[in-house]
């Protein structure tokens, strides 16, 4: 049978649509009601708090806002947060990439156990995660005496904060990559190798470019969480002002000391980060859906 015989006359569909609207269309009143409820809810739960952060931050004028941000302790907190985020995002980028590569492209025993292990940080309370590191590396901890004898500081110092952050943010990159890599399969890698590419060259020329947007997406979420992490970092940091306080910890301290304007000023930076993350995420999602 030829195509022409199957296809209906070209004029027919338009008329049909005008006569009978699609059955899934609700009456306008219902539609408006549903959308209003959704918007009001979003506004109350997300929009209002976000706006109030900025309102509170600027409540005593922008001079106070700037002063709060250039305060040495605040600057130290910002610097520490950036350092911790840079290190832990970097580490998780490598770990996540390697882990998802191994899981998606190779068969080995213990694979499902590894997948479960990657999800662990999502199911463990961050406070417990922080506590684990204190119990391991603290002065009363398992390796504590050894560390003390060799004058290595982990808990209440940068390494501890980084470790806690890495633990909490570990799943983001791997979770983003594993499903995509599994879907893509191994045939492109096989093609590359059969064309004479080495393993490393195959990874950098084929595997990595195929997941680059998903990787960036994972890194973005990982970074947002790394900068905003409170629980785990709070346990291992020791709250030493100007030394081991990250931005979330600094915000809490300022708030507890009734320095609301200063507290919200620092908080506004984190809120800004959230907004930037959101924008970047939207752009990346568009790229991701366009390519797959």
């Amino acid at each position: 049978m030829s195509v022409a015989e199957i296809a209906p006359p070209a004029t027919a569909p338009a008329r049909v649509i005008r006569q009978a609207p699609p059955v899934h269309t609700e009456p306008p009143a219902v539609r408006i009601a549903i959308i209003t409820v959704a918007l009001v809810f979003l506004g109350l739960v997300i929009g209002l708090p976000l706006v109030s952060v900025f309102v509170q931050a600027f409540a005593k004028g922008w001079q106070t806002y700037v002063a709060a941000l250039v305060d040495p302790d605040a600057l130290a907190a910002i610097r520490l947060t950036l350092i911790v985020a840079a290190i832990s995002v970097g580490l998780n980028l490598v770990f996540g990439l390697v882990a998802s590569w191994a899981i998606a492209k190779f068969e080995f025993t213990g694979k499902s156990f590894l997948i479960t292990l990657i999800d662990l940080p999502f199911s463990v309370s961050p406070v417990v995660a922080g506590l684990v590191f204190v119990l391991l590396f603290g002065s009363q901890g398992l390796i504590g005496p050894f560390l003390q004898a060799n004058d290595i500081k982990i808990v209440f110092a940068l390494p501890g904060i980084v470790l806690a952050t890495v633990f909490v943010t570990f799943p983001f990159v791997a979770r983003e990559l594993i499903p995509l890599m599994q879907e893509q399969g191994t045939s492109e890698e096989e093609a590359a190798i059969s064309l004479g590419a080495s393993g490393l060259s195959t990874f950098f020329r084929v595997t990595l470019p195929n997941v680059k947007w998903a990787l960036l997406y994972g890194v973005l979420l990982c970074n947002a969480r790394a900068m905003g992490e409170f629980g785990a970092v709070s346990v291992v940091s020791g709250h030493i002002r100007g030394l081991t306080n990250t931005m979330p910890l600094q915000i809490e301290i300022l708030y507890n000391e009734y320095q609301f304007a200063a507290s919200f000023a620092v908080a506004s930076l984190l809120a800004l980060l959230a907004l930037v993350t959101l924008c970047a995420k939207t752009i990346l999602e568009k790229r991701l859906t366009r390519e797959h």
């Binding site: 045939s187 492109e188 096989e190 093609a191 590359a192 059969s194 004479g196 020329r205």
Partner: peptide, 30 residues
């Protein structure tokens, strides 16, 4: 890698992020 066989895969396995030109050039570029 060293057998020098041309393999055409069932679902082609073309490199989706490379142009047709670069797909064909791949074996020479590496």
């Amino acid at each position: 890698r060293d057998r020098n066989v041309g393999f055409v895969f069932q679902h082609y396995a073309l490199f989706r992020h490379l142009s047709v030109f670069e797909n064909v050039a791949f074996g020479l570029r590496v």
